[in-house]
């Protein structure tokens, strides 16, 4: 363990953690745009510059490990002036169209502009102009909003193990791009979307469906494979408009293409909305009473005539434990047969 002080406060943290990590553990805020605790330290955005007593220049909190006896200052006039300038420079090459941006209200860059009260900009000049040409069906890429923090590049490489994108070009023309500036053609996991601190990467299906302040968040579990990823359903007007996941879950906030982008089936018109009874080979809408009475009558008659073992039930790996429990109880106790199974073999 290492003893150190941050802003005059004595703290003890495990050896080897970074200054940023030490600060977070003690609820001391250091702004950052390029850091995520789940990725390797990067030191790109320079917002987390802090001063350490005895060091000649400010250092990045995200890449500097703590040492015994360190005296750290995370905020003072000089540091804040530097940070404000960095944010100002980023905004000087940004569309600043928060009014129509889907990310508004959930955007780190916007928060920093608010925090540093940046109304005018000393660095007005040329802005990057890119056409949005990506034809992929999942991820909207607006490179004019990109601040080149590199999180998307790193998450794709370090976490997803894919490396579908990288920074191409240098200086003013640098941008995040798939190989040869082609359209994105990857696993479409959307980890990049989940980690982007601005509106540069968005889920296409969510665009225009409501911003963060208008959604209700519901914590639940993904409906696809058996990993059991924790998902947050973003609901607006009885519609799931976006799926995200919290970093403090078994899946560490990561999802796959199905979990993150495969949700629109919930709301589509093809959903069954009424019981149907087949009459002369055609389905006819029926009331619940009609349908359930018919089933009870038919199953009852078959049980009467052929015994309970002439009836079988197939339950569902899609359904909940409670529903599965009830289903087998109904077949075993209600019908009277052990002919109950589900799709575990397929």
């Amino acid at each position: 363990m290492a003893n150190l002080t941050i802003n005059g406060k004595q703290i003890i943290v495990p050896d080897g953690v970074t200054i940023l990590d030490a600060a977070r553990r003690n609820d001391i805020y250091i702004p950052t745009l390029c850091d995520d605790p789940r990725l390797e330290p990067h030191g790109g955005c320079r917002l987390c510059l802090i001063q350490v007593k005895g060091m000649p220049r400010p250092v990045t909190a995200c890449t500097t490990p703590v040492t015994e006896g360190m005296e750290i200052e995370t905020t003072n006039e000089q540091i804040e002036r530097q940070r404000r300038t960095i944010v100002e420079l980023l905004l000087s090459d940004h569309p600043n169209d928060c009014m129509i941006c889907d990310k508004a209200g959930d955007c780190t860059l916007q928060e920093l502009a608010y925090f540093y009260d940046i109304r005018s900009n000393r660095f007005v000049g040329e802005r990057r102009q890119y056409t949005k040409k990506d034809q992929n069906p999942f991820i909207e890429r607006d490179m004019e909003k990109c601040i080149l923090c590199g999180k998307c590049v790193r998450v794709c490489d370090e976490i997803q193990g894919l490396g579908a994108i990288d920074v191409a070009g240098r200086g003013f023309t640098a941008k995040v791009s798939p190989a040869f500036e082609k359209d994105l053609n990857c696993e479409f996991c959307g980890q990049c979307v989940s980690i982007c601190p601005t509106g540069a990467l968005m889920g296409k299906q969510s665009v225009g469906k409501g911003r963060q302040k208008d959604v209700k968040e519901v914590e639940t579990v993904c409906t696809y494979c058996g990993c059991g990823c924790n998902v947050t359903l973003h609901v607006s007007r009885n519609e799931v408009v976006r799926v995200t996941s919290r970093p403090d879950t078994i899946n560490e906030g990561w999802l796959c293409v199905k979990g993150r982008f495969g949700y629109s089936f919930i709301n589509i018109p093809a959903r069954l909305t009424t019981p149907l009874i087949k009459k002369d080979g055609k389905f006819v809408p029926a009331s619940w009473d009609e349908a359930l009475d018919l089933i009870a009558e038919k199953l009852g008659a078959i049980k009467e005539k052929h015994g309970p073992d002439a009836i079988g039930g197939l339950s569902s790996a899609r359904c909940t434990n409670e529903e599965n429990y009830l289903f087998q109880k109904f077949i075993r106790a209600g019908i009277g047969t052990n002919n109950v199974d589900h799709c575990a073999r397929y």
């Binding site: 993904c222 494979c225 434990n321 199974d341 575990a344």
Partner: peptide
């Protein structure tokens, strides 16, 4: 392989 295939088996949806 499925979100609740473990649970369906645990819950006795096996013959």
């Amino acid at each position: 392989g499925q979100n609740n295939v473990q649970g369906a088996t645990d819950m006795g949806c096996i013959s």
